[in-house]
């Protein structure tokens, strides 16, 4: 047992070193977590517009049209991309720049999808995208706007008014996400899509209701809107 004091001293030293090391590691971890936190949870400064890149998986455009004067038929476009510029504190209206890929139309029926992509309807071969660019907006309430912009479909551009709500802002491991829902109605004949309105008469309605559900990744804070 003559080595007992040495053993005790060694254990004490090891324990002290271990404690010191633990303290440093913990401190480092705390520092690390502090450096991650702003990217994950801190919102951009008030009044700074956030550039939101639309997430094609969680963004979609749905349309509704009356079939044979009877039921309402729904279809959707599965690929919606583009961007939204909007301050997360809702100090200004969102600015939309949205692109819908016509070849991603989905009605649950392949033959019908083909018809919709054909020249009688969206004419995907000549006009592969539908675009919307907002130009102005009017605030109706908290996170609720009427956005005016240019809708280009089949090569025809017309101004439309879109009812837009900010659905919410969420946090994920990948960063923040913001969601919007925009609703508007167009007359498809205005865009040269006349098949089924007069000939065959009443096969499909003229009025098309569109619901655009957008979700995007809040990428960065940009300069405040002037």
């Amino acid at each position: 047992m003559k080595h007992a004091p040495v053993l005790v001293a060694t254990i004490a030293l090891t324990s002290w070193l271990a404690t010191l090391a633990h303290a440093r590691v913990t401190s480092s971890l705390i520092q690390d977590s502090k450096s991650v936190a702003p990217a994950a949870t801190t919102a951009p400064a008030a009044s700074a517009d956030s550039a939101i890149t639309l997430d094609p998986v969680h963004s979609m455009a749905m349309f509704r049209i009356q079939h044979l004067g009877a039921g309402y038929f729904w279809g959707r476009f599965n690929e919606v991309s583009g961007s939204v510029t909007w301050p997360l504190d809702d100090s200004a209206a969102p600015i939309f720049d949205v692109v819908v890929q016509v070849n991603k139309v989905d009605t649950g029926n392949e033959r019908l999808d083909g018809n919709l992509q054909g020249p009688n309807f969206f004419n995907q071969a000549e006009f592969p995208t539908i675009t919307f660019k907002s130009s102005s907006a009017k605030k109706l309430g908290e996170r609720h706007y009427t956005v005016t912009g240019d809708l280009t479909m089949r090569g025809v551009t017309k101004s439309v008014e879109v009812d837009c709500i900010v659905a919410g802002v969420g946090t994920t491991p990948n960063g923040q996400k913001a969601g919007f829902e925009c609703t508007f109605t167009v007359l498809r004949a205005d865009y040269g899509m006349k098949w089924g309105i007069e000939a065959p008469k009443g096969a499909l309605g003229n009025e098309v209701k569109m619901i655009i559900a957008l979700e995007g990744d809040v990428a960065q804070a940009v300069a405040p809107a002037k």
Binding site: N123, E126, V156, K158, G192, A199
Partner: peptide, 26 residues
């Protein structure tokens, strides 16, 4: 002419006032 409209025959060359139908290659 019945399926598209009679103007569809000349729309390739002339812009028709008040007509919003696009020019389509077919």
């Amino acid at each position: 002419a019945r399926e598209v409209d009679a103007w569809g025959l000349v729309r390739n060359f002339f812009a028709i006032e008040g007509e919003s139908a696009p020019i389509e290659r077919w």
